[in-house]
Design a protein around this nucleic acid. Structure first.
Lengths: 211, 211
DNA sequence: CTAGACTGGTTGGTTGACCAGTCAACCGTC
DNA sequence: GACGGTTGACTGGTCAACCAACCAGTCTAG
């Protein structure tokens, strides 16, 4: 009765949990050390696990990294969807998306992962595919929010997808700048840039956004 | 008479030339193989030179890579300055800058170098510094062109530096997309995005740019 | 003008560190 | 007792950096 599908820790569950744990450790280690200098042994150590176990769950280091990127990308898009699912006007929703691009603090270094992934993606088609999905997700969501605003008469824009591509591109570029040279681009300034560009794209005044 | 300062191949000249040759080969090899998998031996082979010689001219691999990035960055900014030095209206000059961001063909992969450098820059302050100068150069030049246009009454923009930062950021982001997923972003569309964003930033109609 | 010392450039082989992936043996649970 | 999960030692290979030797010009003293 208990051991059927409601079982607390079947074999499969245990393996899945370990896999997830390894993926998580991999993400942490890569963020800390960078993709280039991340060894399988580092990830093993971060999980208090033997090196061999990694290769039991993931055939190659490449598999592990790829799976980690895919998992991270998927939860990222999922969270973003939750963000826009909430209530509010189109401007409020758009502002939430813009803010979600920007690292919330100096210690939030999640973008580093994507800088590494871009470089890797140049050579690795699998990685490129993951990145395409992630970027596509951002753009799609931005475009949705904009279209919605247009439908409600809040926004004015005859090419929501184009506008979304431009906004997404600008945010990517500016976040790189913010991540690499925090001195040359404050978080505040970055957000202001995002909001100004958004006003240009959806035809509303700056005052429509919070100060 | 011949051997004085007009000498064809003094010691110093020879060394400088070899250094330049090595830097050039390094750039080619890194573009082709990626930073992560570029070996000193690869660069040696590409120059038909022994591995030891590399370490004679550059103490460490890191030195070589850093010097190569710095040299590339500097010639990049120099070329960009030449681009805007030419004649024409402010719109024409701005358009030339926008076009200069964008790889001129599928085979022009020079941006790959900067994707690698961004990832490296996260960990290496020297690299970060080079990138800051490069990006700063782009922004400065964009801001100059915009300010000039404003002074001449061609453009309308009360914050040329802010506009330059936004345009530079957008172009960086979109070029990444173009470089990684050429299928999802054609060169034509990329240029169109650049021009549209520019019209927003400098307050001119789309028709001011070439079709 | 020239022989020999000196210097900078170059070679190729070597070394020591590092690391992904393998393997045989071990443990706990059903 | 069989199987999924786990260990840690081991292997084969790779690579940056070092080094001893060599060579081609250049300088200097006689």
């Amino acid at each position: 009765m208990r051991s059927a599908e409601g079982a607390r820790s079947s074999r499969a569950d245990q393996a899945d949990q370990r896999r997830a744990e390894l993926l998580d450790a991999a993400r942490r280690v890569v963020l800390e050390r960078g993709l280039a200098s991340t060894r399988v042994a580092d990830i093993a150590k971060a999980t208090n696990v033997s090196g061999g176990l990694i290769h039991y769950h993931f055939a190659t280091k490449d598999d592990l990294i790829t799976a980690m990127l895919r998992a991270t990308s998927e939860t990222e898009v999922k969270r973003l969807r939750e963000i826009i699912a909430g209530p509010g006007t189109a401007v409020q929703r758009l502002d939430r998306v813009l803010r979600y691009y920007i690292p919330s603090s100096r210690s939030d270094q999640s973008w580093i992962l994507w800088l590494d992934a871009w470089a890797l993606g140049v050579r690795e088609p699998h990685v490129r595919e993951i990145l395409l999905e992630l970027e596509g997700g951002w753009i799609e969501i931005l475009a949705e929010v904009i279209s919605e605003g247009v439908a409600k008469g809040e926004f004015f824009c005859d090419d929501p997808v184009g506008a979304a591509e431009r906004l997404d591109g600008m945010l990517d570029g500016l976040v790189v700048r913010y991540t690499l040279h925090s001195g040359a681009m404050s978080r505040k300034r970055l957000l202001e840039h995002a909001r100004i560009a958004a006003t240009h794209e959806v035809g509303i005044p700056r005052s429509a956004f919070p100060a």
